[in-house]
Amino acid sequence: MSDDAPDAAATAAPVTMVPSHVRLTYTVTAGRHLSSYLRALADRRIVGGRCPVCTKVYLPARGACPTCGVPADQPVEVADRGTVTTFCVIRIPFEAAPFPPPYVAVAILLDGADMPIFHLVRGIAPEEARMGMRVQARWVADDQLGPTLASIRWFELSGEPDAAYETYANHL
């Protein structure tokens, strides 16, 4: 059909786009190592895995230590308090945001672990956030515990003095 064709078909523009929708359903599995970590959270415990070669403690336990290639699966319970190794301040609202902004997202090196986990800190003004802050987990109520990191509602300042940079410099 030419652009100036006066017939009825010309009232509809030529097709140039088509919907190409993909919708696939899965049942995903967490695997043995991640499951052990998630199960412990439902129990108010934080359990990682130690690499038998380099002795690093990973959170969660892993199917392979990325340095050694062997499972990092020797169970190690770590503390529910630790040191903020880095942070950022979220100031933009978005659909899945857990709180109205601004709020502080952090990487926390829990005492006894070699890998930081990611979580939120509440109870401080964003401009007070800093590396080295000592924080403590605030767990959800018992009846809300489940195999998910959401079993920890957030972290808050523990009241301890800030950690010296050297204590977490190798875990950034």
């Binding site: 599995t29 967490a30 695997g31 043995r32 892993r62 199917g63 392979a64 290639g69 062997v70």
Partner: peptide
Amino acid sequence: DTEREEVELVQPVVT
């Protein structure tokens, strides 16, 4: 295989 995710499938055969 309900037990293994990616790395858990690969690690044993690579080893």
